[in-house]
Design a protein around this nucleic acid. Sequence first.
RNA 1: GGCCCUUUAGUCUAUCGGUUAGGACACAAGACUCUCAAUCUUGGGAGACGGGUUCGAUUCCCGUAAGGGCCA
Length: 485
Amino acid sequence: MSDTVRVRIAPSPTGDPHVGTAYIGLVNYAYARQNKGQFLLRIEDTDRERSTRASELAIYDALRWVGLEWDEGPDVGGPFGPYRQSERAEIYREHAMVLVRSGAAYPCFCTPEELDKIRLRQRTLKRQTGYDGTCRAIPKDEALARMASGETHVIRLRVPEGRTTILDRLRGPVEIENQQIDDQILLKSDGFPTYHLANVVDDHLMGITDVIRAEEWISSTPKHYMLYKAFGWQEPRFAHMPLLRNKDKSKISKRKNPVSLLYYRQVGVLPETMRNYLALLGHSMKDEREVFELDEFVNEFSFDRISLGGPVFDIEKLLWLNGMRIRALAPDALAARIRDHLYDLPRIAEMVPMAQERMRTLGDFAEVTSFYLVMTPKLQADDLRDACKGRSGKEAATLVAGSIEALDALKAFDKESLEAGLKAYCETAGVPAGDLYSLFRVALTGRKGAPPLMESMVILGRAVTTQRLRAAIEALKVLPEPKKA
RNA sequence: GGCCCUUUAGUCUAUCGGUUAGGACACAAGACUCUCAAUCUUGGGAGACGGGUUCGAUUCCCGUAAGGGCCA
């Protein structure tokens, strides 16, 4: 292993770029810079169904926005590429074969039906479920021959007896019985690798010295140790950072929190606030300073100063910090930032079609479009009440909640998709579309009269739209019942 | 269900065996102010529980509980 520190983040390009990615990225970045090492970005797009190019580009955009520059990656290149897993399929296949030949892995020919049967039997016997190892016993020659004949198979890791002890820099040794670990699938029947194989192979081939990732991976680390051992490779050091949490302490999720970096950017959180705030979670500076710059964090970051309780992502404190940082800006600098954020021409141009026919003076533009720009429109109880069209607040809340799922299911967030998706939802829910739209209008704009809905949603974007709908659901749930006339 | 991780106020955290348990957000009160913010001052609020170890535990060990993650 080389002396220079090499670390990486490896996000999957599915959905919006996530605050968790920025959080882990920040720590990796700080560690790399502090040690004069390299910070790499690898795109884990082996899930061909869900990975999109748009999402990959959004990751670049969002990570650069928070100020994390990488030394090697799909877009900037580097000596250890390609850095996109979908372009490395052959490498994984070859490595899987190495393990099959050495006996550390074996092909499994069991069909899904057979696996179901195994599971069912284990369940009725109240035994631990998992692969029973049927194909382990197939002699290597026979197995190789069947593979060569084109018989459908996956490749599984032959998990040895005994126990595995991993070393986590933050927790010390963690021990686990190998029995707990299933014979992992390394290569799927379509020839694509699973996370574990791809991850270990890439980390090794890319010279990664330190794996700093989220705690959710800690229980798969023993599998990774086994793989390193099977290949005869030195494993990197591991550090598992605490997981960011929702208010209810569950793993941070878009159902309960805005998690898209794009959301925070759009709403006007400064990038330096975002990285400063993330640096406050799970780590503290020596003098407990809370407002500081990236380079200070790079200097002071230490694994010794990490606390392991999963921190709740608190938007209140984020906004307080943002206010502090806004006030600390020189007026000229702030002016420029506001101009870039609010009055950049493409953005205005997007809103003009909504505003033009509603304007008598130029100044009216500010009024008409204010709800696009504000972080949270104020919701009047009366307006919500009216928008319920006779339903109770709770019923309306359920209706909106269902519509969010319909929106989530949309691949594209454009006018046509929105219209089709919402219409279909209303039909299955047995609700006139107009009723839902009234709720949407108030939820999204804080007004009863506003520019066209679908277009407005497109301008607001997916993250802001869903966040506002969720806020409206909360308001609807506690909506006082109307006084009986 | 099995395994693993975690545990200081509503939230983020300091403390690396001896402190009146410190700071920050939020909250409350007051000051300033045409108002609202901002700012300043003040206030309430914490070591999950039970055992050990020790002269002494928030701190070390064990158990329980709770929360979380992963696997199924």
